[in-house]
Amino acid sequence: MKFEEIYTTYWEKIFRLCLGYTNEYSLAQDMAQETFIIVWQQLPKFRNESSIGTWIYRIATNTCLRQIEKRNRVKQTALPDNFVMAEEKKHDIEPQIQLLYRFIAELPEIDRIIISLELEDVKQAEIASITGLSESNIRVKIHRIKDRLTKKFMENGE
């Protein structure tokens, strides 16, 4: 697979994953670009040991985790419900979508990754291989995270 092809195929998926992790639009854009810089550098070393998707998701999620070093603490401050950032207003109008991304970004780091991959329709076996956790653990976690998100939506009156 050519780099250009990978880039156009995976760009949106990786961007959403990064946005779920940070809930900051421009930071997510930077992180997604950072992911593709690594993909570009590492592509000659890719040995088809895993599917290209798993490989890219591993790079993307590790890039997200690496943010610990850069920012030390990912901003998780919950904004008031009626607060809409000017930047987000431009890109996103549906409050429910905003809430979903905000609630995901408030989860523990690995949970954010798991649920984002699940919502991207990545198979549970693949999620297990990306995160390094067992498949049964992933199954339980997805169930719990979804429950938690539903609860948050309900508390928010949605």
Binding site: W11, F15, H91, L100, K146, F153, E158
Partner: peptide, 28 residues
């Protein structure tokens, strides 16, 4: 309230910026 929330649908509705290959190669 009693209807399950379709997270996948919401997730995929998020507007994403257009891929910018020029910017990517500049960064590289």
């Amino acid at each position: 309230n009693n209807q399950p929330i379709n997270f996948k649908e919401l997730w995929n509705k998020q507007v994403t910026p257009a891929p910018d290959q020029q910017d990517l190669f500049n960064k590289i």
